[in-house]
């Protein structure tokens, strides 16, 4: 168990480092999948198989797939990688990395400073989780349902291609970029917008 934990931990950290250093988005996403899988292994080693399964299904499955969809839709390929290479100069990442390292050191010091007694880990079986989830946390589950619903509706609404109702604050920049509102007949523009932009 312990060995499993250490191995999967090393894999998780290493793949995460790869995620944040890749230039090509698809490479990064593949390393992210590896990272999620190894975190799932950590869950398994902690004796939480249900969570491990969910980790693999939702994170490594659904979320990664979503990302890949987006990458495909936006056609983020070699040019993006080239751009990332230009953007990731040392002067960009050195200072944030130092700050985060300080934070990391401080948190680890805090972690190991207060109590020295051994933290034993025992298995919590899915049955207890299910009872707790649908017992005392039932309202939170309902709320999570609302959240997911809102997420779906929001994503559907935002992701819809409706160039006509560009927010009026954004329209100036849009005109500056020279992007034409081809789908908008002038008579459909509301009075308010007309007044504002005249």
């Amino acid at each position: 168990m312990s060995t499993l934990f250490y191995i999967s931990s090393i894999v998780a950290v290493a793949s995460t480092v790869m995620v944040i250093t890749r230039y090509h988005p698809v490479h990064a996403l593949l390393y992210l999948a590896v990272s999620f899988l190894s975190v799932g292994m950590i869950f398994l080693s902690l004796g939480a198989p249900f969570v491990a399964a969910l980790e693999i299904i939702v994170y490594a499955g659904a979320i990664i797939v979503l990302f890949i969809f987006v990458v495909m839709m936006l056609n983020l390929g070699r040019e993006t990688a080239q751009q990332e290479k230009e953007w990731l100069q040392p002067k960009v990442w050195v200072v944030p990395s130092i700050l985060v390292l300080i934070l990391l050191v401080e948190m680890i010091i805090l972690l190991f400073s207060d109590n020295k007694d051994i933290m034993r880990i025992s298995v919590v079986d899915p049955r207890k989780v299910a009872l707790s989830l649908y017992g005392e946390y039932i309202i939170a589950v309902e709320l999570t349902g609302f959240l997911l619903m809102a997420g779906i509706v929001g994503a559907a609404h935002i992701g819809k291609h409706k160039r006509s109702s560009l927010h009026r604050f954004l329209q100036n920049g849009e005109n500056g970029n020279g992007k034409a509102h081809t789908g908008v007949p002038p008579e459909q523009v509301s009075n308010e917008q007309t007044v504002l932009h005249d």
């Binding site: 480092v17 944040i20 990731l88 880990i121």
Partner: peptide, 29 residues
């Protein structure tokens, strides 16, 4: 010290994620 080790791994992962947010300019990353 397993719990400590797990928390430390979580901390390291969190820190790496934070570095990623801070250094990347691309919204997807």
């Amino acid at each position: 010290d397993s719990a400590h080790m797990v928390l430390m791994v979580a901390t390291v992962l969190f820190g790496l994620g934070l570095i990623g947010v801070l250094t990347r300019k691309n919204v997807v990353f």
